[in-house]
Amino acid sequence: MSVSATLIPGRRLQPQYLLACLACVFAVWMIISPEVQAQAPVDVYDFETTEQEQRFRQLSNDFRCPMCQNANLSSSPGGVAADLRREIYRMIMEGMSDEEIEAFMLQRYGDFILYRPRLTLQTVLLWFGPILFLLAGVWIARNITRSSGGRAETTDETERETAVTLSAEEKARLSRLLNDQPDADNPTNRS
């Protein structure tokens, strides 16, 4: 939409449109690319099946590195992350299930290790907070549009009086002003 705006001659490109477009593109990019992250360190592990390899990838993506706290195990170069990846590999090759591996991690590092926090009493706000804020936003937006839309047909005494006391002359002057013409009644006000 911003592109077409630039193509129309004489119409200036509004910076807020451009900004909004950029924000949209960024938001979509964040949503559709699941791995917006630093280049993962390279481990050389041999798997017997592709299923094992997939599980390894999945698990090391789902666990959080306890040392470099804003990275998962697969993207963290930290020493303990490499150790934990090695442990995940060992447990997969020993035939442990995903649940058993998660229990192993939880027992040692606690809920912190999970990048997708479990739904507990402590994390309720974390999970449902965004929905709460969205609902609050919708409510506020509705209130604002309703109150501004309702002003035209307001029954408020003072506002109706103002509307009525505009004489025909004043209305004409108002429409002149709105059309951006010089005010004939007030020649000094030309700037």
Partner: peptide, 13 residues
């Protein structure tokens, strides 16, 4: 030296 016992202790550095 491998850090294996450290994992059992929940050590991260």
């Amino acid at each position: 030296d491998t850090g294996r016992y450290g994992i059992d202790l929940g050590v991260y550095g």
